[in-house]
C-alpha cells in the first residue's frame, strides 16, 4: 500500500478550458479528471459507473475527442480543452442532441446519458451524417442498462436531421 501521506501531500494546480471558459483549479495530485470535475469544480453532470474504464459513463471530450475521465490524470489536463454535458447547450438552448434525447425517450434513468451525449457530439463533429451502424459503433463504449439503446440511436438520428436543417437554414 502507498507509503506517501495523503494528509500531508500538497495540492497541484492546473489551468484549462472547461466548456469554453478558462478555469484554475487546485486539487490533490492523485485525482483523475473525473474526480476534479465532480469534486473540485462542482461539475457533477459527468457520472461514474466503475472508475476502471469498463462502462463509459464518465466520458468527456478532451481536445474534441471522447475519452474516459476516470482514466485521465487531472495533472495531464493543463492547457487542454474539456467539454462536459454542462457545456453542450449554447446560448441558453439545448443542443439538438439533448432535445432529441429528451423527446424520444433516449434518457430513462439518465445516468449514462451525459457521456453518451458528448460521445455522440464527437461523432457528429467528425461525421455529420453517420448511418445506424456508425452510430452503434461510436456508442459501443457506453453501457446503458435501461433503454436497450434503440431509442438512443433514434434520437441521434433525429438530431442529425435537425442539425442538417439548422445548417441549411443558416446558409
Amino acid at each position: 500500500m502507498a507509503t506517501l501521506s495523503i494528509e500531508s501531500q500538497k495540492t497541484s494546480q492546473i489551468r484549462f478550458t472547461l466548456n469554453g471558459e478558462e478555469v484554475d483549479v487546485s486539487f490533490a495530485p492523485y485525482k483523475t479528471l473525473l474526480e476534479v470535475l465532480r469534486e473540485d469544480l462542482g461539475h457533477t453532470g459527468t457520472k461514474h459507473g466503475c472508475e476502471l474504464g469498463e462502462c463509459g459513463a464518465c466520458a468527456v471530450l478532451l481536445d474534441g475527442k471522447a475519452v474516459l475521465s476516470c482514466l485521465v490524470l487531472a495533472l495531464e489536463c493543463d492547457g487542454r480543452r474539456v467539454l462536459t454535458v454542462e457545456g453542450l447547450g449554447e446560448e441558453g438552448k439545448l443542443h439538438p442532441l439533448q432535445d432529441a434525447f429528451a423527446d424520444l425517450g433516449a434518457a430513462q434513468c439518465g445516468y449514462c446519458t451525459p457521456a453518451i451525449l458528448v460521445t455522440a457530439k464527437a461523432l457528429l463533429d467528425q461525421n455529420p451524417h453517420p448511418n445506424r451502424d456508425q452510430i452503434r459503433e461510436a456508442l459501443s463504449g457506453n453501457l446503458c442498462r435501461c433503454t436497450g439503446y434503440l431509442q438512443i440511436f433514434e434520437a441521434v438520428e433525429a438530431a442529425i436531421v435537425k442539425i442538417a436543417g439548422q445548417n441549411n437554414s443558416e446558409t
Binding site: M1, A2, P29, Y30, K31, E51, L52, L73, L75
Partner: peptide, 12 residues
C-alpha cells in the same frame, strides 16, 4: 469512487 494511490509525477 476507486482512488489512485499516491505517486510522484514526472512529465519529460
Amino acid at each position: 469512487m476507486m482512488r489512485l494511490p499516491l505517486f510522484e509525477f514526472r512529465a519529460p
